[in-house]
Design a protein around this nucleic acid. Structure first.
Lengths: 246, 246
DNA sequence: AAAGAACAATTGTAAGACAAATGAAAAAAA
DNA sequence: TTTTTTTCATTTGTCTTACAATTGTTCTTT
């Protein structure tokens, strides 16, 4: 071994970490302008392309934004919950698809989190949230609704429930769980019969929230979870038997 | 306007999105090798530095890893929950610090999520989880414990609770919530008196889990939330009065 | 004084070069 | 023949230089 090699021979990663730490620790505050790429390359003793690679890493995490022109540069980004949603969803989706998470596990997590929101939502939900849920229930009852549209409506319904809790931290956390699991849900809610059952439970949930009756909502969510898991079990066993007969 | 300008004049972002979509959609599978940077720059008709900026964006999201050498290149990464934790925590931390999330809101979310895990944990917690919790409680009872060590121990305790639910999706979601809120918690748990109270509640939680008594755990968590919020209120009002007298 | 033109600063992109790593193939030695 | 060494080709990591595009500022002209 020639050198101690504390650096992982990846300057752009090192520089990115350096700047990221400065942002997280508060040394760089929101909307503050970073030194220009030329200045940074001098400070860190690297070339401009290397600095740029580091900045792109940070941009990928929405930590900075860049602007061209005379007064341009890289600025510390204000990360809103809105901005963080897509990243959260992308990561959650990949985590589920790459780690052999069973439907059971994903479903359990999703409903556990959603049930955590329900009491708060029953307490605070606005007329808007209730209206959204009623609208989505109506949409779901339309016979011609495509599977994709059904799923989108289902997501909207449950997001309204979660948003009703009026806690952005919860909404953010739940967004990943609900949206990432939706593709898995797609497979099991395509028959008219299951739709009718789910609509009935959705109605019970909306009623419970309107009446500010957390127990009623909780019961409906438990029923919905049970029903969903039963449907999934049926679908999977049917797939298996179809495979053996072929 | 000269052009339609669908491209935001940010080639590396466009290329990154292109490849990211291929990964998320499953067109590129785990451990598959991407074309070399030279090939990619030909395919996308851009220079190699631009391709590299795109790849660094993906690397920042842990979507790919790169390797030098003859058989090297960029490979689609297998994202484990373990890998995703730090990103989740970084993002959550910044979201809290940048969005004026009140302590009340953060605290409410954290305990709502944790209480969602508690029944599952009471059902499935292993001896290991219980042992970890007992160990941390013991550590917390040591008089000389620094504030930092106390907080770290507190995090370990609650993570053991959450991990006891044996649901990686829940553990992942909670990691962000618990760890990101910890800095806020730091401010309020520094007196011996509050430590003693918290240790008592921790013990109640551990007992409840050991006895597989979810209601007992839930009660203790509610008490802990109430106590924490009361402490926070006291600290803030004291800060305010200190400010006015100065 | 107002409008327009030139200017300067900064990021975005390109091209070419060399260094470093690394596996594979070829050559040499046992 | 088998093992070790050497060479080599491929690929990423980094640097240098250059130019294009954008945009606020300053100067000039009307």
């Amino acid at each position: 071994m020639k050198k101690t090699r504390t650096t992982p021979s990846d300057l752009s990663a090192t520089i990115a970490k350096n700047i990221r730490d400065a942002i997280v620790s508060g040394a760089l505050i929101v909307d503050e302008r970073l030194p220009s790429e030329a200045d940074l390359s001098e400070q860190f003793n690297v070339s401009r392309p290397t600095v740029r690679e580091a900045l792109k890493r940070l941009a990928a995490q929405s930590l900075i934004r860049t602007q061209r022109g005379a007064t341009g540069g890289a600025f510390v980004n204000h990360i809103s919950f809105q901005d963080a949603y897509p990243q959260q969803i992308t990561t959650s989706t990949l985590l589920l698809s790459m780690n052999d998470v069973s439907f059971e596990t994903a479903c359990e997590a999703r409903f556990a989190l959603e049930r955590a929101c329900a009491p708060l939502s029953a307490q605070r939900r606005s007329a808007d949230h209730l209206a959204t849920m009623r609208t989505e229930i109506f949409r779901q009852s339309q016979p011609g609704l495509s599977d994709e549209a059904w799923c989108a409506s289902d997501v909207s319904f449950h997001r309204a429930l979660v948003d009703g809790a009026a806690n952005p931290v919860l909404s953010y956390q739940l967004a990943g769980a609900i949206e990432a699991i939706e593709p898995l849900m797609n497979m099991i809610t395509f028959t008219a019969r299951s739709r009718a059952e789910i609509i009935a439970l959705h109605t019970e949930i909306a009623d419970g929230l309107e009446d500010q009756a957390p127990d009623k909502v909780d019961g409906a969510l438990i029923a919905l979870e049970t029903y969903t898991r039963q449907l999934a079990k049926d679908v999977f066993s049917r797939q298996k038997s179809a495979k053996t007969t072929t």
